[in-house]
Design a binder for these strands. Structure first.
Lengths: 334, 334
DNA sequence: GAATGAATTGGAATCGATTCCATTCTTTGC
DNA sequence: GCAAAGAATGGAATCGATTCCAATTCATTC
């Protein structure tokens, strides 16, 4: 009969139940300094009985941190980004912070919506793998720090952590050439993506410098389009002798096509992928790849964000992480 | 000179700038009903100029929804759960809701912390894959609906969506027996986990009914322990002739061990896994598995949550989703 | 042109926790 | 035993958006 609505108990409910003032309850919640043992016990009992939890909304209204950061990635299902999300999650946990996860699906419009939603929630910081058409103005008014990863933001002022896509593609192509391949097909998916462009450029620069023919199919998305693209280059007089895949799903698709067509790897055609994947070393033959340090990249980005939030300067630049050539046999190494 | 701190603009700042009252600005933000075209324009201009975004904190303080749901899973890096997270994310987007993602790492203590943090943020609902020791009392006072997936909550009142673990394990074992295997080793990792228990039970019931020896190694975690376990059963007089893996990483580990030991699949030993994985059909031979409908399970859970949030009744029961036996050849099928 | 109703508009209370400040209650020192 | 320092406590303003209610403007009709 006392209370009409069975709503969430508030600080004032605790205060009344314990027979103390609101300020005292607040003190108890925040460490209990300057509170007598007796009232401390009374208040804590009241909190237990009511199942009280302070409202983060009310707190952040008074200017407190929200203890929440935002994370926008293209897709949660993508193994690269889910690994990154896990690493960021981990760092956030170390700082007692939750992660608001949003997926942009590489669509600028959706990215904008998600950023707006995050701003309204007054997050303490944002980690972002921006779409190719991210809008710098969006974050102009934002009062929280932003760190990009995997791709840079059009506005150069945003600190960014990413892999050495250009160098990795160069190393990959040089590796193929070193192993005697000369007609190398480069297949890629999202042409407008920053990472794709860098990788294609790295590949092309090496090919050009070596005086080899530049062969590319850069609009390949799924298994079917991969097969179509490969078939175009696996027959005729001008057959290719190696494939360099710009991203990891394509490596798997290319592997499947080659198996299906009964083309020996690496005897007839070598295969090299950008980005390592779970079972690359369990396939027949194991696939050589350029490995990006996903976890390190994500952790670094997260750590930079928290440092910035604590007003430590982290610089404005772009941090490029070294990639690694992992040789497993699909390019005729020994 | 007008404002001292360059803090986030508030509704009142917009009101002053547009020369109107706070209530009017509020009306503009929320659809602009009963506002003259003239003031509408003025207010919208002010909003633009200041880069104003309403504070979700202040809104939810007045009892509004937070447009945020919580999601607690053991690990974001686990492909099963990241696929689930992606599906839930998708449903949330359809309802213009964000997802607060938290990882429990299967630790009850951490799960409790995360739930507390979510309660403080006054989420509208929670989707949870509970640890084996989840505490029912935690959510007693919670004023938001909760849906579990993949595993049930100790408190039976929480609606749950999960796969038919028992039936799947039965089907798997029957399949192996049907194909002539008689000494089947069951390997599993987390004994206390609900899913593991159901699967082991399903397997055992069939083995017992068939009068075959029940062989199990249920404390296998990584590649090394898998190898040790298998080696114990691959030598001697009492060799096994098939392996049933309780979860997907183990299937991959077992595959690796068999390859390394040069044991022919399925000629010498058959291999069958619970839970499908990305490259199961690209391995040599392709691996037969029990496939769980991950996306369907996660979507269903999310849809149930949103229905409950809209006060539609969804019942209290447990929804069991059918699993599917995918035969690929690793059990000697033709 | 006045009256009636409808459309706009602003004032002020409200949500829940924090915090400054004033007040009351203990100590402690001399 | 009394003053001064210090600990414990409550009152009330504050944060930002919503919403009821009252007040004002506007349009319409006789």
């Amino acid at each position: 009969m006392t209370k009409k609505t069975a709503s969430v108990p508030a600080l004032m409910d605790v205060a009344r139940r314990a027979g103390v003032g609101a300020a005292t309850v607040s003190r108890v919640i925040n460490g209990g300094q300057n509170v007598s043992t007796k009232t401390l016990a009374k208040v804590q009992a009241a909190i237990q009985e009511l199942g009280y939890h302070p409202s983060q909304a009310a707190r952040s209204l008074k200017g407190a941190k929200t203890k929440t950061i935002g994370l926008i990635i293209p897709s949660v299902a993508d193994p690269f980004f889910s690994a990154a999300a896990a690493a960021i999650q981990e760092v956030a946990l170390e700082h007692e912070t939750l992660v608001l996860l949003a997926a942009s699906d590489n669509q600028p419009a959706r990215e904008r919506e998600q950023i707006t939603a995050l701003i309204q929630r007054r997050i303490d910081g944002l980690i972002l793998a921006p779409t190719y058409a991210a809008e710098p103005t969006m974050l102009q008014h934002a009062k929280f720090p932003v760190i990009c990863f995997d791709r840079p933001f059009p506005d150069k002022a945003v600190p960014t952590v990413l892999a050495d896509n250009y160098g990795g593609a160069k190393a990959a192509t040089e590796h193929l050439i070193r192993n005697g391949y000369e007609r190398i097909l480069c297949i890629g998916g999202d042409a407008p993506l920053f990472t794709s462009q860098k990788r294609v450029k790295g590949h092309r620069d090496v090919i050009r410098a070596a005086g080899l023919p530049y062969l590319a199919e850069l609009n390949v998305q799924d298994y079917l389009s991969t097969r179509a693209a490969l078939d175009r280059h696996l027959a005729g007089r001008q057959k290719i002798d190696a494939i360099f895949c710009i991203k990891n799903e394509l490596t798997v698709h290319a592997y499947r096509v080659l198996r299906e067509r009964r083309i020996a790897i690496p005897r007839s055609v070598a295969l090299l992928g950008f980005d390592d994947f779970e079972l690359a070393d369990a396939l027949e033959p194991p696939i050589s790849v350029i490995r990006q340090p996903v976890v390190e990249i994500a952790r670094k980005a997260a750590e930079m964000l928290f440092k910035t939030m604590e007003h430590e300067s982290v610089g404005k630049g772009m941090i490029t992480m070294r990639v690694e050539l992992v040789t497993r046999g699909s390019c005729g190494e020994q």
